[in-house]
Write a protein that binds this DNA or RNA. Structure first.
Lengths: 199, 199
DNA sequence: TGCATTTTGGTTCGACCGTTCTAGAATGCG
DNA sequence: CGCATTCTAGAACGGTCGAACCAAAATGCA
């Protein structure tokens, strides 16, 4: 056997994700990563490959840790409430964000994905995962009568995904509570409406 | 007097904006800019200052040329139609975008603005300008009865701004017509709804 | 015509980039 | 105990970065 590692992989990925999250991909140097993760360059390259590969692993780690986790928590709630709680969490996260880092996945969607076909597919798949959560939740809400049937679950899921992206972008430049609430409120109000045919 | 310039300022700003738009701020080198603009480094620094200053001027140029121009055109239309046409243009721009560059202002909001307080204020002001267009148009539509009064013009304007950001982000990673239409449709449908009290 | 002024085309600068390499330290197994 | 293996620490690599510098060229005015 050989000498054991002196670092914890998850801890390093946390720190690396923090760097990329704060500064973006291009503006983060390998030396930044070395300093913030606390491990040396050789260890970093040995364990995670080059900068690009590390980025993808850090993004995976982030998504699993924060987004997938939030989805899992919300899936336990009644449908209409699940969507409400989801956006409440997004709102409070966006407002308490001293560095204005936003969501690392949304940042990746604009910063890195368009220049890297592999990563574009990864990010697209992650966004589809969020969209699917919305769609399925809307379907459940339509089934139990708590969400309108005036639009299809597919369309509403797509709309909610778009609104989520919009909130995350605006929050980085104009983190004003009233603005973000104004973006979200109509989307939630729309869910509650009765179909026109029942009016 | 002195030797006259051999380049056209607007043409250079167009080319520079194209570079930053395609590659982002950090990934664009001054050598890229020199090549694409066709002028030399000395001319570039003399006429536009450093890279950061050039970026801001290029962004200004872009916004005035494409966003402000679109707003001016839409302002001539009846309110409800103005918003519909606005999003139709966004949709077709987003779908015909071989490089997936999206909107340079939205890119700036995530790529550059969070790391540069001055630029953050500039971008925030530009976004407010779009929001104001939406709000005023909704107000006019509410006045002539073509847009619902079930939500305030302020809230609807904020929502439309958020949806616009969302479309622009999604289009860069998942430029699918059905998805983008699904994001937009509920927002437009919401405008047409009658207030619940009239149902 | 010549002088002051500005632009132009390259070159050059020190700094930093991502990555690799060289040593040596630390482990489990035979 | 020693050997193969994998770790750590840090120096070093070629390359590129943003920016500054330098003559030479080109103008309008005296």
């Amino acid at each position: 056997m050989a000498r054991p590692r002196e670092f914890d992989e998850a801890t390093v990925l946390d720190a690396a994700a923090g760097c990329f999250w704060s500064r973006g991909y291009e503006a983060t140097s390998v030396r930044d990563l070395i300093e913030k993760t606390g491990i040396t360059g050789a260890s970093l390259y040995n364990a995670f490959g080059d900068k690009r590969t590390l980025y993808q692993k850090a993004l995976d780690h982030y998504v699993e840790d924060s987004i997938a986790n939030r989805i899992r928590r919300c899936e336990q709630l009644p449908p209409r409430r699940a969507i409400g709680v989801f956006f409440e969490e997004i709102l409070s996260r966006s407002l308490y964000d001293p560095e204005h880092r936003g969501c690392m996945l949304v940042n990746a969607a604009l910063d890195v994905a368009p220049h890297d076909p592999d990563l574009q597919q990864v990010v697209a798949a992650m966004l589809t995962r969020i969209e699917t959560f919305f769609r399925r939740t809307v379907e459940a809400g339509q089934a139990d009568g708590t969400i309108t049937r005036s639009l299809t679950a597919e369309t509403l899921g797509q709309h909610l995904l778009g609104v989520l992206m919009g909130v995350r972008v605006l929050a980085r430049v104009r983190p004003e509570k009233a603005l973000l609430e104004g973006v979200i409120a109509p989307a939630l109000a729309l869910l509650d409406r009765r179909p026109a045919s029942e009016a």
